[in-house]
């Protein structure tokens, strides 16, 4: 008869549980950053029908702007953060007005190419202005100071990442549910012609979605920069993850972007923790491929058929 060691078994199990909880919580923190970027992708996709490949680089530029406020202008952190948000809002709107709006009768593919162009230009411009060397993003938040929640530990950075993301997501939810412009945005994404007949100024609302997407990216960028450091490449990887998250959640679902971001962050961490860290970054690819095969509209997306 097999004799087991009850004490050791429970402690093994407890350890396993603690590790699982830990992986999930820190995965959730990373995932919430993916979710912010994915939300930016989704709101632009819903209103303009464009996959915005420049989302990452727009976020990167905003982060560099915050860096300039902090380092060059020596602003207090809160001020730099808020000013960078304002700047990114204007920046997002400006990109839509200057580069996407002029396209007359654009095809979705044409607009995607434009966003690829924007990405390249921003990348080059950032390298030219701020250089390609990696910089440290000053942060008042500590990576080593930790908070304990039972057996789970959470670094101060991750705690703020979670808090800020949740605040932003709730704000966005309230905006789309309860404000006139927010509801109009959803209406435009479903039926732009009818929305115009109701009096919505569609071009203006489109710029607003780009502005909001840009802010989401900026916040994600400023939260992630203390961890990943700062250089023009910083958003390549997160943006890919955001695409995976948006695909997983459903390209046209805001809730899907949040769920997709969170689950991808957790999934990655579980693979990294239990399987091998080497595979962590590939999870996003597998997710994209699996979703496209099994459920192309994503977890929460709807394929809505348009009546002609």
């Amino acid at each position: 008869m097999h004799i087991s060691h009850p004490a050791r078994r429970t402690s093994d199990l407890a350890l396993f549980k603690a590790m699982l909880a830990q992986l999930i919580v820190s995965g959730l923190a990373t995932g919430s950053l993916y979710a912010l970027l994915a939300l930016g992708l989704v709101i632009v996709y819903k209103t303009s029908n464009v996959l915005n490949f420049a989302q990452g680089e727009m976020a990167m530029v905003s982060t560099f702007v915050a860096f300039t406020f902090l380092e060059t202008l020596q602003m207090p952190y809160l001020w730099a953060f808020l000013l960078a948000i304002v700047a990114s809002f204007l920046f997002g709107a400006a990109i839509e007005v200057a580069l996407l709006r002029p396209a007359t009768n654009p095809t979705p593919l044409g607009l995607i190419i434009v966003t690829l162009g924007v990405q390249q230009v921003l990348y080059g411009a950032a390298g030219w202005i701020w250089g390609y060397d990696t910089k440290t993003f000053p942060s008042p938040l500590s990576d080593t100071k930790i908070y304990r929640l039972g057996r789970v530990v959470l670094s101060e950075v991750n705690l703020w990442i979670l808090t800020a993301s949740i605040i932003l997501m709730v704000a966005l939810l309230l905006f789309f549910r309860y404000t006139r412009v927010g509801v109009a945005m959803r209406a435009i994404s479903q039926n732009p012609t009818t929305a115009r007949l109701m009096g919505t100024r569609t071009p203006w609302v489109l710029s607003l979605t780009w502005a909001i997407a840009s802010v989401l990216g900026a916040v994600a960028g400023m939260l992630i920069a203390p961890i990943t450091f700062l250089d023009p490449n910083m958003m390549l990887n997160p943006l890919l993850k955001a695409f995976a998250a948006a695909t997983l959640g459903g390209m046209n679902s805001l809730a899907g972007a949040v769920v997709g971001g969170g689950s991808l962050g957790i999934l990655e961490n579980l693979v990294g923790g239990y399987l091998t860290p080497e595979l962590k970054d590939s999870v996003a690819f597998f997710v994209i491929i699996l979703v496209l095969c099994l459920r192309p509209s994503g977890l929460m997306g709807r394929h809505y058929r348009r009546r002609v």
């Binding site: 209406a187 039926n191 009818t194 929305a195 919505t200």
Partner: peptide
Amino acid sequence: FEELTVEENLLMGAYV
């Protein structure tokens, strides 16, 4: 607007 509620549809009518 299919994804909007009935109430939100009505509110859109009064947008201006």
